[in-house]
């Protein structure tokens, strides 16, 4: 990384860390700069990697089939005109409808059938039985069609403990990932920028 790059990165990093003291103009400036850069990045990437090769170039090459996505995409921009905004519902309907249609077999296969199959394929071991009990009791915790009393109550309670283990493990992982990011930034500030530690 060049020296000017290191200085820009270091100053931006310090501006964001200044929020730990309190909300201040340096943090706000860095926040708005990050928003601007991210918006500009998304704009350039989406036009250069999707619109240009997927729509503009085929249209310039005479591909008349691309007129349909051109019209659908154009109708999205009508949303900016309040009186005609209702027309933008048509491309939205194509997107939502097609997305819903694709998700039905995909969700049933990946999230339901494969998960159930993987749970039941290993019930000959102790861990497999513990897993099967966990899946059934956790699902029963979310069974709201009848009041959770009688036999259902202790069963749902067991499901709660399984979920607490999952949430605890997820929380532990989140803490670790954030701390490792912090270590990375500190290594950059103390090593690359101030050269106080060897990297």
């Amino acid at each position: 990384m060049s020296d000017i790059g290191i200085w820009i990165t270091a100053l931006a990093t310090l501006a964001i860390y200044s929020f730990l003291y309190r909300d201040n103009p340096f943090y706000k400036a860095a926040e708005y700069l990050l928003i601007g850069l991210t918006v500009g990045y998304s704009l350039v990437i989406s036009v250069k990697t999707v619109l240009w090769p997927g729509l503009v170039l085929p249209l310039l090459g005479g591909d008349t089939a691309k007129i349909i996505p051109l019209v659908l995409g154009g109708l999205m921009f009508i949303r900016l005109v309040p009186k005609l905004g209702g027309w933008s519902r048509i491309p939205l309907a194509v997107y939502v409808g097609a997305g819903a249609g694709v998700s039905i077999p995909a969700m049933l296969k990946a999230r339901v059938l494969q998960q159930m199959g993987a749970t039941m394929s290993n019930v000959t071991t102790i861990s497999g039985v513990i897993m099967l009990v966990g899946v059934i009791t956790t699902i029963l915790y979310f069974y709201f069609s009848r009041e959770q009393k009688g036999l259902l109550q202790p069963v749902a309670k067991i499901g709660t403990y399984y979920m607490m283990i999952f949430f605890g493990a997820t929380f532990g992982y989140t803490v670790m990932s954030r701390v490792s990011l912090l270590i990375g930034r500190m290594e950059f500030l103390l090593g690359d920028w101030l050269r106080l530690i060897a990297r």
Binding site: G134, G159, F166, T170
Partner: peptide, 30 residues
């Protein structure tokens, strides 16, 4: 063991619930 057995069991149950919920919502949308 904790990550591969009890945590995965709860995760699977939640994924199954999400899958069924998303399928039901998709059918309602269509």
């Amino acid at each position: 063991w904790v990550l591969n057995v009890p945590a995965v069991a709860a995760k699977r149950a939640i994924l199954i619930g999400i899958g069924l919920g998303m399928t039901a919502t998709a059918i309602k949308v269509i």
